[in-house]
Amino acid sequence: MKILVMRPSPEGEDLVNNLKKIGIHAWHFSFFDFYSSTSLINLSNKVNDLYESNIIIIFSKKSIYYTNLYLKNHNLQWPFDAEYYTVGQSTALSLYKHVKKKLFFPKNKKIVKIY
């Protein structure tokens, strides 16, 4: 069996190493990786956009983690008036810990709500 792991770094590499330890041949490749920003355009410059948004789409648990960390460190909360959409159920469940409101995610080609 050969496995291609497409998780972002560094979790993707960690998973490949664990698979190799148990004798499963695996490679790592990801379309994107997460690193701390060195850009002048960062979340602090975009926080007003976050609160003015009607719809917020979350693509990863990492983005939830870093956004929540920023908000918490600056004594801010997740916007309540926006509708939240996530790319999957586990991402929705991760976001729900911070945003105790209705979330939407695709499941079997239809949108599902989490309360």
Rank of each mutant, 00 (worst) to 15 (best):
3 I>Q: 03
3 I>H: 01
4 L>G: 07
4 L>F: 07
4 L>Y: 04
7 R>C: 03
7 R>N: 06
8 P>Y: 02
9 S>Y: 12
14 D>C: 12
14 D>P: 10
14 D>E: 15
15 L>H: 08
15 L>M: 10
16 V>E: 02
17 N>M: 09
18 N>E: 15
19 L>H: 10
22 I>W: 01
23 G>R: 06
24 I>S: 08
25 H>P: 09
26 A>E: 10
26 A>T: 05
28 H>Y: 05
28 H>I: 09
29 F>N: 10
30 S>L: 10
30 S>F: 09
31 F>L: 15
33 D>Y: 02
37 S>E: 06
38 T>C: 14
40 L>F: 11
41 I>L: 15
42 N>L: 07
42 N>I: 11
44 S>Y: 06
44 S>V: 05
44 S>L: 07
45 N>D: 03
47 V>W: 00
51 Y>G: 05
51 Y>E: 00
51 Y>S: 02
54 N>P: 10
55 I>N: 02
55 I>D: 01
55 I>V: 02
57 I>G: 00
58 I>L: 01
59 F>P: 13
59 F>N: 15
61 K>Q: 07
62 K>T: 11
62 K>G: 00
63 S>G: 02
63 S>E: 08
63 S>N: 02
64 I>N: 01
64 I>Y: 00
65 Y>V: 07
65 Y>N: 03
65 Y>H: 07
69 L>S: 14
69 L>I: 12
71 L>E: 08
72 K>T: 12
72 K>E: 15
72 K>M: 10
74 H>I: 04
77 Q>F: 15
77 Q>H: 15
77 Q>W: 12
79 P>E: 01
82 A>L: 03
82 A>I: 03
82 A>P: 04
83 E>L: 12
84 Y>V: 03
85 Y>M: 04
88 G>T: 09
89 Q>C: 12
89 Q>Y: 13
91 T>Y: 05
92 A>L: 07
92 A>N: 06
94 S>H: 07
95 L>D: 06
95 L>V: 10
96 Y>M: 05
96 Y>E: 09
99 V>R: 02
101 K>Q: 11
102 K>N: 14
102 K>G: 08
103 L>I: 14
107 K>I: 13
108 N>K: 05
111 I>T: 10
111 I>G: 05
112 V>W: 06
113 K>S: 12
114 I>E: 08
115 Y>T: 13
